[in-house]
Design a protein around this nucleic acid. Structure first.
Length: 231
DNA sequence: ACCCAGGGTCATA
DNA sequence: TATGACCATGGG
């Protein structure tokens, strides 16, 4: 299929992006993700990162995450204790800090309904979790799907601005579909593993920002001119 | 001095 | 349903 060959070209050209790694679910339940962070990132960090990076470069979000880590606030228990105002002050580099502080608070309140138990989340169905995440103020489809994919290892594809642009230019999308319609098209036409879903979205982001803008003719999607151009 | 970055919400027509 | 305003910092 078309989506498979695009994936191959992207991967060959840009190399693995190494976003949040896929962890063996068994390891995940027994030790990796349950409570305390290991390896520098756990479920809560991934979710907070998904919120912090909304409409902002990852480097900005990273600064906010680093500040939270430095002050040992990057866990749901600490976030619950700190005031929204103080939290906002900590995450200023991420931009929209007042809104995002509230969003992180909302997410934390939701997680508390599960007693901050990651293994409880793992037992729930993807569509159920997605609906709950979408009901939170500040979590839209892209953020919800990022949390599901990168934080909960669910095979959902994340549709972002780059995906819209690139796939529309390539003729995969007409361009006027809604989020879930684009996602359905992708799901129906790309039979990949969880790891590939993880990597595909990351590759699209890499392609959109690092490559397309610089070349006259894109070696990956074979388009002349800037394929990041807004449609 | 722009423009953009791993969006989402709310008000308006 | 579909635009528009708003949120706000940091790097090019």
């Amino acid at each position: 299929m078309r989506l498979r060959s695009i994936y191959k070209r992207l991967l060959a050209f840009h190399g693995p992006q190494g976003w949040w790694p896929i962890v063996n679910p068994r390891t995940l339940v027994s030790e990796y993700f349950v409570n305390a962070p290991r390896d520098g990132h756990d479920f809560f960090e991934i979710a907070a990162g998904a919120i912090l990076t909304q409409n902002v470069s990852w480097s900005n979000a990273e600064k906010a995450i680093a500040a939270l880590k430095k002050n040992k606030l990057l866990d749901p228990v600490s976030i619950r204790k700190i005031s929204t105002g103080r939290l906002a002050g900590m995450i200023r580099p991420a931009g929209y800090y007042n809104q995002k502080a509230g969003k992180i608070k909302h997410f934390t309140a939701w997680y508390r309904r599960y007693d901050f138990r990651y293994d409880e989340l793992l037992g729930r169905g993807t569509s159920e979790l997605r609906a709950e995440l979408l009901s939170l103020n500040g979590v839209g489809p892209e953020t919800a799907d990022s949390i599901l994919l990168y934080g909960l290892n669910r095979k959902v594809f994340v549709i972002d601005a780059y995906t819209r642009r690139i796939f529309t230019r390539l003729g995969i999308f007409a361009g006027n579909e809604k989020y879930h319609e684009m996602q359905d098209i992708f799901h129906a036409n790309f039979k990949g593993t969880l790891q590939e879903y993880n990597e595909y979205h990351a590759l699209i982001v890499a392609h959109g920002k690092d490559y397309c803008k610089k070349k006259a003719k894109c070696a990956v999607c074979y388009l002349s001119g800037r394929c990041d151009k807004k449609i």
